[in-house]
Nucleic acid binder design. Structure first.
Lengths: 200, 200
DNA sequence: TGCGCTAAACCGACCAGTCGGTATCATCTT
DNA sequence: AAGATGATACCGACTGGTCGGTTTAGCGCA
């Protein structure tokens, strides 16, 4: 079990606050209050607010990584089924309020890509790292269904882009349904991409 | 020709600054300096910074709306060709530095969807308004190629989501190529969605 | 006694927004 | 024609408050 130290309490608070209000608007004082720690503890554990953001991006990558690692979708024998089950899982995760299902690093990187390269790179590590976990299944499916004209890396990143775009639409429309609609199209793309090519 | 008043100078400065650094980080003083106007003028034209953001989202919708309205892709006879040419145009627009081709409202809405409903709604009007300009072509193509299982609105919004996701990846990877890769997949989806269904 | 950690007062920089004032110009009055 | 009026555009010093970050004093456990 994870220790409930000040550090992890601050990280958990950061995840929630940044997903709600963004990086700049989430003040250190606010984070400390939400985490139930004093400001001194914050700067004891993180040299700067920027360092917290980098740590939060890594923390996000770890926690979500575990979620997907232990998910059921890996159980399917067919690689395409695994990919589609992954998409179904992403769709299922779109539940509750918007800050609860949207992506920390996708939110953060828009704000800081220009002003903070360290945070930007940490966000990219999280996104691309997650995308990489899909590449083996995609490679296997591409071979099995004789799909060419792209690469597992390229397709995995496209899936992440669609999902990130789904979150933007959900936020703008203030409606989770907008995200669901996007994920349904992503599923359809994958489906026909792998089943269509065979008919040629 | 547009009058070069303080108001439009501020709006133009806001477009650039917000796309670079985000809404919160773009301070009023900074915007005034970039626009070459005094702070008093800013608050003469916009009651609050939030009001500027709402106006900027509308202004963004107008200027980009004109760009697409007068673009060449409408000339194709075939509706599918028009859609694909639209995607090709979006791909061509991915040039130069990242702040120059990314979307103002997509950037802004992530930051403010929770804290400012007026800005959020203005962003949604811009996104959904642009998506609507694609619906007629999509409807025509769906009928011509006998595609069912979705709606023009749904597909138009998916296209916007993919493009927004493309921008997020480009920002995170600090590489416009990441956006190109996404748009290529979007094109492939549209292509096989309309040409595959016929073979069934 | 010493050390990892926490607490809260504190600091300068910067923030959005205010306010008193000037410049310009079209309209009305005489 | 000349002067008065009022609306609009613009200016920049100023304010109260918040920001990230520092400092100093103390707590709990070895």
């Amino acid at each position: 079990m994870m220790k409930l130290t000040a550090r992890t309490k601050i990280l958990d608070a950061a995840l929630g606050a940044i997903r709600e209000t963004g990086y700049r608007a989430a003040s250190v004082d606010e984070l400390c209050a939400a985490a139930g720690v004093a400001k001194g503890s914050f700067f004891h554990h993180f040299k700067t607010k920027e360092a917290l953001a980098v740590a939060a991006a890594a923390y996000w990558g770890e926690t979500t990584g575990e979620l997907f690692e232990h998910a059921d979708y890996h159980r399917h024998d067919d690689p395409l089924d695994r990919i589609l089950a992954y998409i179904d899982l992403r769709k299922e995760l779109v539940r509750g309020d918007i800050p609860e299902f949207t992506c920390l690093v996708g939110t953060m990187v828009q704000e800081v890509y220009h002003s903070s390269p360290p945070i930007r790179d940490a966000c990219w590590r999280s996104i691309s790292g997650h995308a990489q976990t899909l590449e083996a299944d995609i490679a296997e499916a591409m071979e099995k269904f004789k799909v060419s004209g792209t690469t597992p890396e390229s397709l995995a990143l496209y899936m992440q882009a669609s999902i990130q775009g789904a979150f933007i639409l959900a936020k703008a429309a203030n409606d989770a349904g907008a995200a669901i609609n996007v994920i349904d199209h992503l599923r359809r793309y994958i489906e026909i991409l792998f089943t269509n090519e065979q008919k040629k």
